[in-house]
């Protein structure tokens, strides 16, 4: 009898122990229905880079926050005309196009939020939600909560936090589920749209800070290409990569020099502040700026059309 109790307690205890361990693991269990990929974004493509390496490289590659904030600081007025139109959604009927344009609308949302344009934010949130649903990651966007926040201008900071946080969660989920190919397209879409908006503002203002920022993206183009070329057996990825290859060619003429100084540290209000000892300088000619913006427009047209 005692032996039987011992065996049962071993099984029960063991199960409890194992479930405790499972609770500690950081991986999220996914619903298999959410992982169904219906077209070109299947995950069976042979990888040159491991999922881990890719995920390490692409995290936060294309946050629209800095670029949008810099654009706002130039004093240029907000322009909805330069953004993608939510009415274009019907055109995006493949996972490839949906993922790319999810990135595009994410960048647009960042730009809209930075300028506090809550009157149009809902249509862009809806576009994001629809595209995310289309690639089976809509569960990360609580549209009702986002809409509630968007209707009150006092809540715009929270709206920004929640929408960016939703993107981060979705991105982590995609990478955990070995769907980095989808994640890489979202990243590419966000980056291109950010560059497109920047290019449009440069054309209006010829702002030197923005031109410098455009030039500094030289290294980012290279990283994006490394990621996208990992899926080059998919013809869609090959086409997108070829556009970026042309952009890389134009960037090769841009010179970035680095000046080394002394690192500086200070303490202010209980926070440690460090100033980097490396400062980069961009040498870019007006012709190079023009050519780069023209190529970005070409890529953006390919994505949103």
């Amino acid at each position: 009898m005692l032996k039987k109790i011992l065996y049962i307690s071993l099984i029960v205890g063991g199960t409890a122990f194992l479930s405790g361990c499972a609770g500690n693991s950081s991986g999220k269990s996914g619903n298999s229905d959410e992982l169904i990929s219906t077209d070109s974004l299947s995950t069976d493509a042979p990888l040159k880079l491991s999922e881990e390496v890719i995920s390490d490289v692409i995290q936060n590659i294309s946050s629209p926050v800095e670029m949008a904030s810099l654009i706002k600081s130039t004093g240029v007025a907000f322009s909805q005309k330069i953004l993608n139109d939510p009415n274009n959604l019907d055109k995006y009927n493949t996972s490839f196009k949906r993922a790319l344009n999810l990135g595009v609308f994410a960048a647009d949302l960042g730009y809209i939020n930075t300028f506090d344009k809550n009157s149009i934010v809902i249509s862009y949130l809806l576009a994001v939600k629809n595209l995310a649903d289309g690639i089976k990651v809509g569960q990360f966007f609580d549209f009702a909560a986002l809409k509630r926040l968007a209707t009150n201008s006092n809540n715009l900071d929270s709206l920004m936090e929640i929408s960016v946080s939703s993107f981060n969660e979705m991105d982590s989920y995609l990478r955990e589920q070995n769907r980095s190919n989808v994640s890489s397209l979202i990243v590419a879409g966000t980056w291109i749209e950010g560059m497109y908006i920047t290019g449009s503002v440069i054309e209006q203002t010829n702002n030197e800070e923005l031109i410098n920022r455009l030039g500094e993206q030289k290294d980012i183009v290279n990283i994006l290409l490394i990621i996208l070329e990992n899926y080059k057996n998919d013809p869609n990825f090959t086409e997108l990569s070829s556009y970026l290859q042309d952009l890389k060619g134009l960037y090769s003429k841009v010179k970035i020099t680095t000046e080394f100084g002394e690192p500086k540290k200070m303490e202010k209000d209980g926070s440690l502040i460090i100033i980097q000892d490396e400062i980069s300088h961009v040498n870019i000619t007006p012709e190079q700026v023009k050519a780069i913006i023209a190529q970005i427009k070409k890529i953006r047209e390919y994505i949103v059309s």
């Binding site: 490289v57 590659i61 920022r213 500094e216 993206q217 290294d219 980012i220 990283i223 680095t258 209980g270 926070s271 440690l272 502040i273 460090i274 100033i275 980097q276 000892d277 490396e278 400062i279 980069s280």
Partner: peptide, 18 residues
């Protein structure tokens, strides 16, 4: 830093990169 824990630190970036 030097045995002290800070709840936040700030970084002024001089070079775009990963």
């Amino acid at each position: 830093e030097k045995g002290k824990h800070y709840k936040s630190c700030q970084f002024i970036c001089g070079k775009t990169g990963v």
